[in-house]
């Protein structure tokens, strides 16, 4: 059993820090891109059967394609680096956000919508003030799932020169005759990052949905 080289980790602390920040940047950019695409699409198709089936189907196919293959398919159109990684990761996250948003929006009770329209809210006001807030828990569930997945898959970005903690595993570990220390460090850091971001988002959800945690007293 090979042992962990703490001295190596100490010497490369600065590199590891840079990679961690890169990893967070890739994840953040991907999620922002995914949300920017998925939310409008979900809102547009929420009440229509066929458009929803088409959007969900496309998103599902993107979700199914292995990340490395997806990055590779993008490479002829982009340069090596962060761009193909961010686009690929965002594409991967679409399915989770689109589906959960639509389910959340469709889950708004018809009576609540009816009462809101009856009070004189315009369709846009109903969407912004009623449907989206009430869909928030479902949307946040999708975002949390997508974020955790993205943190993990972002390790593959190293293959296309995207940087991040994958570099620790691939460049510093696997390519150096399976050097255990960076591989283990990369694994632990990515996992910790995923858990931390999930907890952060769970906390945000808790703060954003005060009504959901107050039951009948």
């Amino acid at each position: 059993m090979p042992e962990i080289r703490w001295d190596w980790l100490q010497r490369h602390a600065d590199d590891i820090q840079i990679m961690t920040v890169q990893h967070l940047e890739i994840t953040g950019l991907s999620m922002a891109l995914a949300l920017a695409v998925a939310l409008p699409v979900a809102v547009a198709v929420r009440n229509r059967r066929v458009p929803f089936a088409v959007a969900a189907g496309v998103a599902d196919v993107l979700y199914t394609i292995p990340s490395l293959a997806l990055f590779a398919l993008l490479l002829p159109y982009t340069d090596i680096g962060r761009t193909p990684a961010v686009i690929g990761l965002a594409a991967y996250a679409l399915s989770m956000i689109v589906r959960n948003t639509v389910v959340g929006l469709r889950g708004v009770p018809a009576v609540v919508r009816d009462a809101a329209v009856g009070q004189g809210l315009t369709p846009r006001q109903v969407l912004v003030r009623v449907e989206l807030p009430l869909a928030l828990p479902a949307i946040m569930t999708g975002v949390r799932l997508a974020t955790v997945s993205t943190v993990g898959i972002a390790t593959v970005a190293a293959f296309v020169g995207g940087g991040g903690l994958g570099e620790l595993i691939w460049d510093k570990g696997i390519q150096r005759e399976m050097f255990l220390t960076p591989i283990l460090a990369g694994t632990v850091l990515t996992t910790a990052l995923a858990i931390a971001l999930d907890a952060l988002l769970a906390g945000a959800q808790w703060l954003l949905t005060p009504w959901a945690r107050r039951g009948r007293t």
């Binding site: 009576v111 009462a115 329209v117 009856g118 009070q119 004189g120 009623v130 807030p133 949905t209 009504w211």
Partner: peptide, 18 residues
């Protein structure tokens, strides 16, 4: 606009839960 000037009460109330 019309609806804002007409009170509306329904069986399941339909209060905005949030």
């Amino acid at each position: 606009r019309l609806r804002r000037e007409i009170g509306y009460v329904i069986q399941q109330v339909g209060l905005l839960p949030h």
